[in-house]
Design a protein around this nucleic acid. Structure first.
Lengths: 121, 121, 121, 121
DNA sequence: GTGGTCTAGACCACA
DNA sequence: GTGGTCTAGACCACA
């Protein structure tokens, strides 16, 4: 697993890591029982500090998404997808409201969605 | 002018203020020559410190959207709307990609957009 | 008398007015017994608020350069030019030091001075 | 790095900090890749508030002279010296004109420059 | 340890 | 009344 981090984003890096992992759980890319990459490994991969990954995992554990197994690693729990989905859609609603308030046409919005969902077709 | 600030958002308050004002410019709610609310007035309205509003205005001035007139107030400049629109759509694209990566169905997305754009209809 | 004011300068407008008047005294353009333009007139000329000119005159009076004559106007006093000259040269020294610290060559500096003093020659 | 701040100058302290740093870049005292002193460190050194230094650094970053690295510090960018030089000489021209308008002799001006550039020789 | 944001409050410049 | 600057101090994010 790896993914891109935006180091200049106002969203803290550990938040971005949590988001990516949740997305992978939601898309069933990470399933119950799967191992998360090791803290060290991921930190190296995405070039962030150990503490940053550590914090992301710790919080995911606290929120119930994963479980630490000492000396082994972090394992994906059985999770209620709806909660994650709600979280993401919550963020989506915020920005779609910003777009709406700005008087940007619905057409432009739909076009972008089509591009993302239906690719270059 | 008024708007809501989310004090618990990771987006800094001064950024949120900038966003709201840009939305108002884009939606033509704020037009060339209009006055922005006074720094202290807005600060009181949205219950933040004067310095926070001041920073937002100062940066908007630096970016060319408004002009300070000492002892008078801040005035909206003639601005190129396309730049603001691009900024907002950029943020929109980021999150729609997150939604897509999470395997959330296009239908759900469209439904939300319909709600926002077509209201309670 | 008239002169240009830089409204965007960090130097307050009333300070700029004081500076210009002192320059005119120093260059003997304003002599003992001469009248200063009326507060209203100057304010209109250089497009600033009455209070701003008023403050400049008040401070010049306090510093001994001019005297208010009720119902008549402000009159230039006999003044010790050396004090004004020192003031201006003080400012000059500050900036020449900045230029020096920046490693800008003496030649460039001299060239600018020649241009100002010897005009287009 | 250290330098003196004039707390009674009409030039805001954050502006003075920016000026000093630009001078150091121009004189090659601060080179690409060098670290600026930490915000808190410099604030303590020159006895101003952290926010004042922070604003100076933030603006320098906005203007492209330095780059913030969270948790690390501010780093000098590769910069176009000509722009800084022009800025400083612009200020120089303003005051040399004031000197000229005041009828202060060219000789006096040259003498000051010699002192600054050629030291006690 | 380093940067980033925010508050409460003070004082100044200008209209 | 409106903008501009600064301080002391607090709390957060990241290495």
């Amino acid at each position: 697993m790896w993914f891109k981090i935006d180091y200049h984003s106002p969203t803290p890096v550990y938040e971005q890591i949590k988001e990516r992992i949740k997305e992978n759980i939601l898309s069933n890319n990470l399933k119950e029982g799967d191992f998360l990459p090791s803290i060290r490994g991921l930190a190296q991969d995405i070039k962030v500090n150990l503490n940053t990954v550590s914090r992301a995992y710790r919080e995911l554990e606290f929120e119930g998404y994963i479980t630490a197994q000492k000396g082994v690693g972090y394992i994906i729990n059985k999770t209620n997808s709806d909660i994650i989905e709600d979280e993401i859609l919550e963020d989506f609603k915020k920005i779609i409201n910003r777009v709406f308030r700005s008087n940007i046409s619905k057409n432009k919005v739909i076009k972008i969605i089509d591009e993302v969902y239906d690719g270059g077709e």
